[in-house]
Each structure stands twice: as structure tokens, then as C-alpha cells.
Amino acid sequence: MATASVPAGGHGDPTRRDFLMVATGALGAVGAAAVAWPFINNLNPAADTLALASIEVNVQPIEVGQAITVKWRGKPVFIRHRTAQDIKEAVAVPMSELPDPQTDNSRVTDTAKKVRPEWLIMIGVCTHLGCVPLGNKPGQDKGPYGGWYCPCHGSAYDTSGRIRKGPAPLNLVIPEYLFTTDTLVRIG
């Protein structure tokens, strides 16, 4: 075997040199990809950005019908103390009318599976192109469904923050949250 000469190598007959070329090339490609990865991953959120991941909010001062906006991960979070009327309207909507069907109950459940229909906690960022919808402050346009209305491209949300009309594809996102007491909620 050691004395074997280079094969005669007819057309398409792979030689040992061909094999070494392919093997070296493949190893080079894997190496290049391995080096590219740190450069790409470098642009992902850093540890300190990830560390800002949760906040605690005292919801006791929020009266029924009021809403506040808090900042979490650089984004607004809407906390609305819903009225009985709000809840009734949200529950009454048939699933067939929703572009992104979700029950109202599933949107007011914290991570401990406890349902609190009076507290609606959502990321206040339109799922279309990221604007902050109006309707969280008194006097703002709540849109045709009594929830929120995004002035950028005209998306309208209902009293459960579900998309009803306009270009946004999804309901306003519910972050992970947990009521640690009846008045204290941890978001994130």
C-alpha cells in the first residue's frame, strides 16, 4: 500500500490529491463559519441588556378604568385596570371575528395560572411596525373597538388588546408577569 503509485486516474477517477483538496476545502469552510459566528453573535443583546429583564410594579394606586404606562426593556408596558363593561365586551366577542383568535381569559392569566380579568398587562407596541398605540391616557383616541388605536398605520385593538382592524397581524403581546401579592406585579 505504501508503495502504491498514483492511480492512473482516468476521467472522473478521484485521486488521493482530489480527496485532500476536498477535505482541506471543507475544513476551511467550517473554520471560516466558526470564525464568522462571533462576529454575528456579537451584535445580539449583551449581558447587561439582558439583565434589565424584569421590573416590579405596584398596581394599587390604579383606579378602575385607569391605565398606566411603565417602561420595561426599553418598551412601554400598558397596565389597565379594566371596568366590568370592558371585560364584558371582551368576553362577548366571538372567536370567529378575531384575526388572531385568543380568549380574553388567556390574556389576563399570570405565570402562576391565576386569572385576574380586571388587570390587563400588555406590551404597548403595535405588532405592525412597532409604534405605541394611543388609548392608554385619558382623552386619547381609543379607536372603534374601545381599546387602543395605532395612528401610524391605523390598527385598532379591542378592550382585550386584540387586533380587530388594520395591518397589524397579531394581538398586543402579553409579557410574562406574576402577581407576587394582590397589588404587586413582577413583569419579566
Binding site: L43, N44, P45, A46, T49, R73, K75
Partner: peptide
């Protein structure tokens, strides 16, 4: 973020965070 499946990861990657910010 309109890109199916990987859209959200791509926007997070572009931002270097969870929203437009210092990064």
C-alpha cells in the same frame, strides 16, 4: 419582524436589545 419564524430574532439582533436603544 414580518419575516416568518426568524423575524423577531432578526429584529432583536439588529437592535442589540429588545427595542431601539444605545446598542
Amino acid at each position: 419582524s414580518a419575516i416568518p419564524v426568524v423575524g423577531d430574532s432578526i429584529t432583536t439582533w439588529l437592535w442589540g436589545g429588545f427595542s431601539i436603544g444605545n446598542p
